[in-house]
Amino acid sequence: MPSWPTRSGLPPAGVITTLMITATILLWAAPRAEMDPLRLFRSLPSLLDFAGKILVMPEWEYLPRLGQKMAETVMITILATSIALAASIPLGILAARNTSPHPVVFHATRSLLSAVRALPELVWALVFVSAVGLGPLPGVMALALVTMGFMPKFFAESFEVVDPHPIEGVVAHGANWLQVRLYGYLPLAMPDCIGTTIYILDHNLRSAAILGIVGAGGIGYDMVMAVRLFDYDRLLLIALSIYFIVTLLDRASDRLRAKVT
């Protein structure tokens, strides 16, 4: 009889409990999500059929509009990220344990931030679209808002790991509260913060690509319409261009981040 290399010869208790919990959760979730291996298997032909439909000649006449929509997506990304960046430095200072003026402010800011980032940008986009109408504006607003929930938190975490010794040097020379933050913490955490910003820019581009689903600007709208109208030749082009631009930014941001940190 083979056995496991433990004192009792049974799998470790931790492994057994983890497996049992996982199995229970999956048994609860699978029927609710209609995850049925059989159905998955039976849908294979329709998937292949669909793949055949998608892999067609791209619709080249669509290219100019595609370029325009992709540019719009990029502009939404840049605008939203920049707006969030401007708000994130002060918010980040308030949200870091060591730079916050008071523990109460620290806890309040942290809670506020997690509240702001709780809802996905598409929910906000939906709300803003119904408030200000279709177009890129609600997209920028939604993306900027949710980014304002994430970015200051990352910045604050960078402030918290700043080496305290150089800070002491700044304090020792009589710098006031704001000066210590501007001439001590900020420059020391700068490489980290730039890395975070690039990472968020990367992430926001993916988000901006789907904002159009609810009519908040960018390529997303054309994507939905292409599927609704069975314009699969157009869909292929959209998917490829998203793949292309996301990969491009991904590689560039990997390289940039390696450089600054």
């Binding site: 009889m1 083979p2 056995s3 496991w4 290399p5 799998p11």
Partner: peptide
């Protein structure tokens, strides 16, 4: 069996 961390009595 080895990939499942199972060992025979002789190995043990």
């Amino acid at each position: 069996t080895s990939v499942l961390y199972l060992f025979g009595r002789e190995d043990r």
